[in-house]
């Protein structure tokens, strides 16, 4: 697996897209640092870029890379290498490349500007977000052979998680405000990786005003310390389950 990873990472690292993506993140983070003098405000602004923009770029890049590599993957499948190893090499290579890009583009400039503890939270949440969306993206791309269908489905998933999901929750609270929704709202948070990441950072920043109704209920239910552990656990489930499903699908797939 490491042999394949080495060459996929080299290929990805030399791609113009990764260079421009990293440079864009870097310039954006530096710009936001100049605009916001306060460290917490900077992190929150960067957070919005991270949780909304990054998953979109993530799914598009991973999906396009997979579709463009299909013929190469077919060639690899004729070598004495297990299918599962080829899949995991693709998963880890893309995840590592995007994490590296995120560290260079977001974490590194924040460190230059002297942030410390908050950066660690942003680093952890960014890594989790990248790992979650890489696995979701690979799963969908493996299911759909046609690139247009796969990418369309992924954009739909991103739209749902980034925008529609919150809208549905708001409508639900508005229509069902006579019913006790506390427990349901806690479960709903677990269904959306973007909400998980947002809440993880906000809990660490301890900004109750930005928790929202679901977030506030979540903290009330679990408390801050347990809340962080639960959020991390659910994030890992969001990484592991789609990855295992994608690997299973990949192992049985007709190329």
């Amino acid at each position: 697996m490491r042999k394949i990873m080495k060459y996929i990472i080299r290929d990805v690292a030399r791609s113009k897209f990764i260079f421009f993506y990293t440079a864009t993140l870097f310039l954006l983070t530096v710009g936001l640092n100049y605009l916001n003098r306060d460290e917490t405000k900077t992190v929150i602004t960067v957070l919005n870029v991270v949780i909304y923009l990054m998953p979109l770029v993530n799914i598009l890049y991973v999906s396009l890379h997979y579709y463009n590599s299909k013929e190469f993957i077919e060639t690899l499948l004729t070598y004495p290498v297990k299918r599962g190893q080829i899949f995991m090499a693709e998963y880890f290579s893309l995840t590592l490349a995007l994490i590296f890009s995120y560290i260079l583009g977001v974490i590194f400039p924040l460190l230059i500007f002297g942030s410390t503890m908050l950066i660690l939270n942003l680093l952890v949440s960014g890594i989790l977000l990248i790992a979650m969306f890489t696995s979701i993206s690979l799963l969908v791309s493996i299911i759909y052979d046609e690139r247009i269908k796969g990418i369309g489905m992924l954009i739909g998933i991103w739209l749902f998680m980034a925008i529609v999901f919150d809208g549905i929750i708001l409508i639900m609270y508005f229509l069902l405000n006579d019913f006790p929704l506390d427990k349901i709202s806690v479960i709903l948070i677990a269904l959306n990786p973007i909400d998980l990441t947002r809440l993880y950072i906000l809990i660490n920043l301890d900004i109750a005003s930005l928790f929202g109704y679901s977030g506030a209920n979540f903290i009330k239910f679990f408390g801050q310390a347990y809340g962080i552990v639960i959020l991390l656990l659910v994030s890992f489930i969001w990484i592991i389950v789609p990855t295992l499903l994608a690997r299973r699908k990949f192992n049985k797939k007709d190329f």
């Binding site: 042999k3 394949i4 060459y7 996929i8 080299r10 290929d11 030399r14 463009n68 190469f72 004495p80």
Partner: peptide, 20 residues
């Protein structure tokens, strides 16, 4: 079709390493 950004020598290297 091999990865676009790999050099020819790397393509031959990866093949040799995987073929054992």
């Amino acid at each position: 079709i091999y990865p676009d950004n790999l050099k020819v020598k790397e393509i031959i290297e990866i093949t040799k390493s995987l073929k054992n």
